[in-house]
Amino acid sequence: MNIGELAKGVAVVTGTNEASAKAAITAVFDQIAGAAAKGEEVSIPGFGKFAVKDRPERQGRNPATGDAITIAASKKVAFTPAKGLKDKL
C-alpha cells in the first residue's frame, strides 16, 4: 500500500476527498517525525509506539576488502506494535 491508496481508504471512511485525506496523513507523519527528531516517544493506543533508540559505535568489516572499520554511533526510530495491532495479525 502506498500513500495514494491509503488516502483513498481514509477518504472513503471519513467522507472527505482524497486531497484532504492525503494532507491529514502527511501532517500526522510530519508530527511523528518532528517528535522523533526531538527524541520524544509517540504512542498511538491500539496501534503502537514510535521511539528513538541509540545505536552504539561498533566494529564492522568492509565487505570489499575485509578490513576492520568502526561504524559510528547513530540513532534509529523503532516501532513497537500494540496488542490491538498484534491481535489483528
Results as ranks from 00 to 15, higher is better:
M1T: 09
M1S: 12
N2I: 13
I3T: 07
I3E: 08
E5I: 05
E5T: 04
A7N: 01
G9F: 08
V10W: 06
V10C: 05
V10I: 04
A11K: 06
A11P: 03
A11M: 08
V12K: 03
V13G: 11
T14Y: 04
N17W: 01
A19Y: 11
A19D: 03
S20N: 08
A21T: 00
A24N: 08
I25C: 04
I25V: 15
I25Y: 08
T26W: 02
V28I: 12
V28A: 10
D30V: 07
Q31N: 06
Q31Y: 00
Q31T: 12
A33P: 03
G34I: 00
G34A: 01
A35M: 15
A35N: 15
A36K: 09
A36L: 12
A36F: 09
A36H: 07
A37E: 02
K38C: 03
K38T: 06
K38A: 12
K38W: 01
V42Y: 00
S43N: 14
S43E: 10
G46K: 06
F47D: 08
F47Y: 04
F47Q: 05
K49R: 02
A51Y: 06
A51P: 04
K53G: 00
K53S: 07
D54M: 02
P56R: 05
E57K: 03
R58Q: 01
R58I: 02
R58N: 03
Q59R: 12
Q59H: 11
R61S: 03
R61G: 04
A64P: 04
T65V: 14
T65I: 09
G66W: 14
G66P: 04
A68H: 02
A68T: 13
T70D: 02
A72W: 07
A72V: 11
S74H: 05
S74V: 01
K76C: 00
K76N: 09
V77Q: 10
A78L: 13
F79A: 11
F79V: 14
T80N: 07
P81D: 07
A82L: 01
K83S: 15
K83V: 15
G84R: 10
G84K: 12
K88M: 09
L89E: 12
